[in-house]
């Protein structure tokens, strides 16, 4: 039950893109076409879970042990950059099909602030290991969901008339605002779920 609440919370209520403003650069950058959006979404789910898995260990067993918490930012970004590189090499060698699908998105992910954001967030929220892992997985799923919905809407722009000033990014931002508004409605679920788990 606890994990279901966590899932609904991370995917719908506190969607990482639309309510926590993380990872907006790829959100606007790769959402022009459906297939790139799907690829990017999958890559983020994958890397986010992996990265949180490793950074959680690094934080609790290396940084805390040696009293180096103030180096968190620099260590995490380095771990993530190295990890992305490793995943890329592994996939290329072992799962060429997946590599073909995700390949070009992997380097972009290093500077996706959602990855570093979630890694830091689970430490700040003092989550346990399993909870952190689930949180990362669901946040990634939330990212993918928002990105895919957004790409679906953006594909329609090609055939509709848009005033010149609004073309490209401006209309995309307004659309994102409208999707965010729709997601905002999920906040009602949150309070009723909390009441449910209390009983």
């Amino acid at each position: 039950m606890e994990y279901i609440v966590l899932a609904i919370n991370a995917i719908l209520v506190k969607n990482i893109l639309l309510a926590q403003y993380l990872g907006n650069c790829p959100f606007l950058g790769v959402s022009k076409k459906m297939d790139t959006a799907v690829g990017m979404g999958m890559a983020v789910v994958f890397v986010m879970t992996f990265a949180t898995f490793i950074t959680w260990f690094v934080h609790h067993y290396v940084l805390v042990t040696f009293g180096l918490e103030y180096l968190q930012t620099i260590v995490f970004i380095f771990v993530i950059a190295a990890l992305v590189q490793l995943i890329e090499m592994f996939l290329k060698k072992l799962v060429p099909g997946l590599y073909k699908a995700l390949g070009i998105f992997l380097p972009l992910i290093t500077t996706n602030c959602a990855i570093l954001g979630v890694a830091v967030l689970v430490i700040r929220k003092d989550f346990g290991f399993v909870e952190s892992l689930f949180y990362a997985l669901f946040s990634g799923a939330g990212f993918a969901l928002a990105l895919i919905i957004f790409a679906g809407i953006r594909e329609r722009f090609r055939v509709s008339y848009i005033p010149k000033a609004f073309r490209d990014t401006a209309i995309a931002l307004v659309t994102a605002g409208l999707i965010a508004m729709a997601f905002f409605g999920f906040q009602g679920i949150d309070s009723s779920l909390k009441a449910l788990t209390m009983n």
Partner: peptide, 19 residues
């Protein structure tokens, strides 16, 4: 001050600047 407002506000500003 909520998330949707942020997106829409930025989109509008961008459109004005594009003019």
């Amino acid at each position: 001050v909520k998330a949707p407002g942020a997106f829409i506000c930025l989109g509008m500003l961008l459109a004005i600047i594009n003019l």
